[in-house]
């Protein structure tokens, strides 16, 4: 699905990614773990196409296509979705209007007409139920005054509505209590298929009990220093991140 080779990236002149290699195939779930400052969020921003980040070396290929010259919205049209660690508040734009705009923008990019209103309504109902989101919520301004759990559930609601090929979940578990975590994980698991892929970025192993990865990679100082199966996550949980620094 996505092949990243020797990716180097910097922000405001500071080097954060120092040669990332990652190959994610359709149907797979990869977890990326690492201590704070290792470059986890940078990696997700770079894949999603945030303009503040500059790729200085290396390539990213989505289904064989080079992503480097493609804008953030075009990457979304090609099927990339980023669940933000800190979802942004957009006062005045309701959750419903936002998701309608996003869906129709994607349809337009593929030469399709707007989704008919009743189909849209049905889909919204279905997906909000999946994430246990109350309908009253949908008319609130996007992320404004939402709790951490509400924000993250809203991110996965958007993922469910947009049906991306490659989802990157950036610390989706941060700030969530166990109940919210279960709802979010359940939502993500329902969306897993053999045709899409998910990259779960997390600091803690806890989320991976619920969203079970096929592969776990450890990021340190902007490089992937070790890869393994889900057992690697348990090993990190037991030992912490210090022993990783010796491998780097």
């Amino acid at each position: 699905m996505i092949t990243i080779e020797n990716l180097h990236a910097q922000v405001e002149g500071k080097k954060i990614l120092n040669g990332i290699d990652l190959d994610v195939k359709p149907g797979e779930v990869h977890a990326i773990m690492g201590p704070n400052g290792s470059g986890k969020s940078t990696l997700s921003s770079v894949i999603a196409g945030h303009h503040d980040y500059e790729v200085t070396e290396g390539t990213m290929l989505l289904e064989g296509e080079d992503l480097s010259e493609i804008s953030a919205e075009e990457r979304a049209h090609k099927g990339i979705f980023l669940s933000f660690q800190y979802p942004v508040e957009i006062p005045g734009v309701s959750v419903t209007n936002f998701i309608k705009t996003a869906i129709n923008a994607n349809r337009k990019a593929h030469g399709l007409e707007n989704m008919p209103a009743n189909e849209m309504l049905k889909k919204i109902r279905e997906k909000s139920a999946l994430l246990e989101i109350d309908s009253r919520f949908l008319s609130r301004s996007l992320n404004e005054g939402f709790s951490g759990g509400e924000k993250k559930r809203n991110e996965i609601f958007q993922m469910a509505m947009l049906e991306p090929k490659l989802s990157i979940l950036d610390e989706t578990d941060s700030g969530l209590d166990i109940d919210a975590l279960k709802i979010v994980a359940n939502g993500v698991n329902k969306l897993r298929s053999k045709d899409n892929a998910i990259v779960v970025i997390t600091h803690y192993q806890r989320l991976l009990e619920y969203i079970v990865p096929d592969f776990v990679h450890v990021l340190f100082d902007g490089k992937i220093v070790k890869s393994g199966t889900k057992d690697l996550a348990l090993e990190l949980e037991a030992k912490g991140y210090d022993w990783i620094k010796e491998l780097a």
């Binding site: 196409g49 804008s71 919205e73 979304a76 933000f84 957009i90 996003a102 994607n106």
Partner: peptide
């Protein structure tokens, strides 16, 4: 707000819109 703009664009909403 640039962050808000990126958030919208990351969902496929073109910059102008």
């Amino acid at each position: 707000d640039n962050d808000a703009l990126f958030y919208l664009r990351s969902r496929g909403i073109p910059e102008k819109e």
